[in-house]
Design a protein around this nucleic acid. Structure first.
Lengths: 113, 113
DNA sequence: GATACTTGTATCCTAAAGGATACTTATTCT
DNA sequence: AGAATAAGTATCCTTTAGGATACAAGTATC
């Protein structure tokens, strides 16, 4: 029973960790946008409906701290910034796929447009 | 390009829907607890570290509204309440597995205990 | 010289999530 | 009678998430 308990606590922790890193309304949409080829701040901003500059800025930092994206300063005139996904980021692919797939099914289940 | 755009918006929506239903710190741990055999309010409460009654109560309602769990009144003396997962709830299995698996890897990556 | 664009930051605010503690109503146990 | 258990609810509070709007520093364009 103690072993079972420990396993269960481990599961809870793993899920809460994932939620901390990828949870919320914007983190995954931002990653998808960058993954889809958007590199510049304003490109990303325009590609995601209703996101504000402030939120985008904060979330980009969070994602960089968690090693999922990389911020590169291109020292051209004018200086540009490029965001790209890291190799490590590819590890979330299955999570994202499953979430996308379940979200679609759930929307149909509820009969929303 | 317009088609691509629409696909992308659809992905964002699906992920945001999933986050709405399953996101946050407690919803999945609660489902796991019930799935693991805990049926009664206090059983569930004790099985999840640090959750409060108030939060558990609110989350149970949210999960019931979203068709993932069922609340049954057992009309015995004394009246008992039993929570169980629905058949529909089994559909989230893959999402949860992936989140659990990624969370474990990420914790190792960051070198936390 | 005035205006616009880029990548944000600053300020202020509202809403949602989460937490601490106490209490209730009814039964059953000692 | 007094204490314990069950399944929450009530109140109040703090923290985090998210949003609106304005602005800044530098270069480029008209």
């Amino acid at each position: 029973m103690v072993i079972e308990e420990e396993k269960f606590r481990g599961k809870i922790q793993a899920i809460q960790d994932t939620m901390y890193v990828l949870g919320g309304k914007w983190k995954l949409p931002i990653i998808l946008s960058i993954f889809g080829g958007n590199k510049r701040f304003n490109e990303i901003s325009k590609s995601i409906p209703n996101i504000t500059n402030r939120v985008l800025s904060k979330e980009l930092k969070h994602l960089e701290e968690n090693l999922l994206i990389k911020r590169t300063v291109i020292d051209d005139y004018p200086v540009r910034i490029e965001y790209t996904v890291t190799a490590y980021c590819f590890g979330i692919e299955k999570v994202v796929k499953q979430m996308e797939s379940w979200g679609k099914k759930h929307r149909e289940k509820l009969g929303l447009k």
